[in-house]
Amino acid sequence: MKSKSGTILRLTLLAGLLIAGPVRAEDAPQSCEVPAYLLTSESRLPKVAEAIKNGRSLDILVVGSRSSTINTSDGSAYPSRLQAMLLDQLPGVPVNVSVELQAKKTSEEVAAGLAKLVEAKKPTLVIWQTGTVDAMRSIDPDDFRSAVDEGVVALQKGGADVVLMNLQYSPRTETMISAAPYLDNMRVVAQQHEIPLFDRFAIMRHWNDTGDFNLFSTSHGIGLAKRVHDCLGRALSSFVIDLARLNPAQQN
């Protein structure tokens, strides 16, 4: 039955293709530049700058949900890529990126444990990726905002710099997951605490729009996920470096 409906679909699509004329080829040359405005922020990362300046190690803790990993290969998810690129770009600085996976937990549930986590690990920088689970469960955006707010306060109290990372751009589930309120509220919290927001959603959408990646792809292979995470790691590393270095207040 499935194959039959598949055939009908394919025929419909074929018709669509014929009407629409040639469309973009699937494997466009791989590049994943991110426009500068998506990687700028008024906020700074003073603790990171200090650690680098004083020759201490840069300990980064990524707190995130499932989308901070790739199923079977942890070495190629963006946290590991971030570590590799930071090591590459900051020669002589010991960089450790560890991941604290909080699958299927809402921001409220994650926020409750953040204080302890920071106390135990003493990271220089926490990258908190959140919002996906909340959006999927349609948590009240106001509750979501106060949870993120609470979490950020806990992290800052624990003495870490904080970067928030928002949802993935996921065009296939757009009709089912309403991302907008969660994106907005994360931006608000970032503004209120003057901390940087790594706009993963906008960046991935940019890649999809420019054709760098086809995020609609139904491919079951792991290649696309690996390449996207590689690019995210790259963008994230230059984001962190930029925000840590360009702070004159911390250079004296």
Binding site: K2, S5, G6, L9, S65, R66, S67, I70, N71, T72, A103, K104, T132, V133, M136, Q168, S170, R172, T173, M176, I177, L215, S217, T218, S219, H220, G221, I222, L224, A225, V228, H229
Partner: peptide, 18 residues
């Protein structure tokens, strides 16, 4: 249809909505 045909590892988490 999407749930049965779409299995991109990039979106394992988001597909949980199904």
């Amino acid at each position: 249809y999407v749930a049965t045909s779409f299995e991109n590892p990039l979106y394992t988490e988001e597909m949980g909505i199904m």
